[in-house]
């Protein structure tokens, strides 16, 4: 099986780069030469073709792998609707912004607003799977409507802010105000979390759907799922009761 297209950063980014147009719409049938002409907005230089910043090789196979330090690359895989995107390192802000399908795997950390909604958008990601092996910046998954967002490390403040639906799993510690103003959706905290005052405790139990999700995350993405995550129980908190209140926070407990 072909590894698809590989995009290797030619040299370190000195300014912020907006990659929001690179994988929007259909891209899985495009080869390196076609992807190379997709526009990137480079701070200080204006619009440049992707090929000017990245060396692209390989062949279309529904997958693209980004190599190099992309900490200054924003909006990578924004609007993603298909295929598999793998980022070998960390990325900047708004990765997977409003993505609707496909898979975005970030092997490092992500800046703020990964999987969230754009400034003028009502909804964040509406489908697909966004996997961040490292930590995630503030407001990750804000206003997400559907899909699975997994964070292997810590999540900064306001993860799942105003969620409409979907699932966020946080393997590390969660920052303050997780799930604030959520309507529906699930935030699963496998590390420490401070439950917002507008959530109310319901029960402690073993949700079967988490076994399904954790099995998939371990098998498909190699995330650090432990036996205790399956064997433990979860405190269920309903909220945000200041809004619709049909969401939940599931807090792992060894009890």
């Amino acid at each position: 099986m072909s590894e698809g297209v590989v995009a290797r950063l030619r040299q370190r980014l000195r300014h912020q780069a907006d990659l929001g147009e690179v994988l929007a719409g259909g891209w899985t049938g495009l080869g390196p030469s076609e992807l190379a002409v997709r526009p990137v907005y480079l701070e200080g230089s204006g619009t440049v073709p992707l090929g000017e910043l990245f060396d692209l090789r390989g062949e279309p196979a529904g997958r693209i792998r980004f190599e190099g330090d992309l900490a200054r690359a924003d909006r990578l895989a924004a609007g993603l609707a298909e295929g598999e995107v793998i980022v070998e390192g960390s990325v900047g802000a708004q990765a997977g912004l409003g993505m609707a399908g496909g898979t975005l795997r970030i092997q490092g950390s992500a800046g703020p607003l990964a999987g969230a909604a754009g400034p003028a958008a009502r909804r964040g990601m509406t489908g697909g799977e966004l996997i961040i092996r490292g930590s995630a910046g503030a407001e990750t998954g804000a206003r997400m409507r559907r899909g699975l967002l997994a964070i292997g490390g810590q999540a900064e403040a306001y993860a799942g802010h105003a969620m409409i639906a979907g699932t966020i799993l946080i393997f590390g510690d969660a920052g303050p105000d997780v799930g604030l103003w959520s309507k529906r959706g699930s935030v699963v905290a496998l590390g420490a979390i401070e439950i917002p005052a507008t959530y109310r405790y319901a029960c402690t139990y073993r949700p079967a759907h988490l076994g399904l999700t954790l099995t998939r995350l371990r098998a498909r993405y190699g995330l650090p799922v432990k036996k205790r995550h399956f064997a433990g129980r979860y405190h269920r908190y309903s909220g945000d009761l200041a809004d619709l209140g049909k969401g939940e926070i599931l807090e792992w407990t060894a009890e």
């Binding site: 899909g147 639906a165 699930s186 139990y205 949700p207 079967a208 759907h209 399904l212 999700t213 049909k246």
Partner: peptide, 22 residues
């Protein structure tokens, strides 16, 4: 009931006295 979509498949979490039926 709560719906969850995983891997393109939809699942239903149905609350029952014991906990949930998936």
């Amino acid at each position: 009931q709560i719906s969850k979509v995983l891997g393109g498949e939809r699942f239903w979490r149905i609350p029952v006295m014991e906990g949930e039926f998936l």
